[in-house]
Design a protein around this nucleic acid. Structure first.
Length: 266
DNA sequence: AATGGGACCTGCGCGC
DNA sequence: TGCGCGCAGGTCCCAT
């Protein structure tokens, strides 16, 4: 479930550890995670190139390379990047010029590695909406007007706002005291503003904590992030609300488990 | 156009 | 105990 805070955490750690290092070899243990290019070109295009810059767009990691190409990494649900790695359970390992490995692990094989000429042209990138951090509260308010769809699936719609997934949508809506099944268009201006600041606060705090380690997510070092202990509703079905002690409910919205407090959130 | 559901995968936890 | 099933959720794709 890596979302914006988890990917941002890894991005910062990669930046610190990998920039200016060279990829000297690539060990492919499971080619399934390599989406582009399909053949040996993936390895050939990476061997001997230096990692110049590391970027994050929504939940996608982008490593810009000295040959003008980019290595993009999407962790999807169970992807991990570990440095220094062991190569033991990795799907793909990158041997670096310092003699250490960068491991890409991914239990469920949903993750995606690509080498592309121009990452800006990726369809995934082209379809992304803005990140909340680039918006003003007024912008955000305007974007919500006329949207009859339910607020939680809307927040998770990467074409609308990018970076937010199931966990942070739930936590942000709790902080803003808004029920996840409300129609976006019927939120008051005050609620829209509260939501804007709640998302900002939740994402920033999660980044400060190094992300939420539920399921498989770990930081680059292999250590867990610390935000999971701060969750108010996510994965707390049947437990008492930390504010009012009402039992946290779980409903299904847009095919996703959705946690909320029926009393605090209206 | 918005929404729902399935597909992609694997491991875990549940109920019987 | 062991088995089968549902579930976890990011993204794409198709149907309605």
């Amino acid at each position: 479930m890596p979302e914006l805070p988890e990917v941002e955490t890894i991005k910062r750690e990669l930046e610190e550890k990998l920039v200016a290092k060279k990829i000297t070899d690539v060990i492919v243990n499971n080619p399934k995670v390599i989406r582009e290019p399909q053949n040996k070109d993936f390895v050939n295009q990476l061997k001997g190139v230096t990692i110049r810059h590391i970027l994050r767009k929504a939940k996608l990691l982008i490593l810009e390379l000295s040959n003008g190409k980019a290595l993009t990494i999407h962790l999807k649900m169970t992807g991990q990047l570990i440095y220094p790695g062991t190569g033991k359970k990795s799907r793909v390992s990158f041997l670096l010029s310092d003699g250490k490995l960068l491991d890409f692990n991914d239990q469920r094989l949903f993750g995606e590695l690509r080498v592309v000429d121009d990452w800006h042209k990726l369809r995934f990138i082209q379809s992304l909406g803005p990140e909340l951090s680039t918006l003003s509260p007024k912008n955000f308010q305007k974007m919500l007007t006329g949207k009859n769809t339910r607020i939680k699936p809307l927040l998770m719609d990467q074409a609308f706002i990018s970076g937010i997934g199931n966990l942070y949508a739930a936590e942000s809506l709790f902080q803003a005291r808004i029920r996840p099944d409300r129609a976006a268009s019927n939120l008051s201006d005050k609620e829209k503003q509260a939501l804007f600041f709640a998302i900002k606060r939740v994402l920033n705090e999660a980044i400060r904590c190094g992300g939420s380690s539920v399921d498989d997510y770990v930081r680059l070092s292999g250590k867990k992030g610390n935000y999971a202990s701060k969750h108010k509703v996510y994965d707390r079905k049947g437990e008492p609300c930390l504010v009012c002690k009402t039992t946290i409910k779980r409903i299904n919205l847009g095919g996703r488990g959705t946690y909320f407090c029926p009393k605090c959130q209206r």
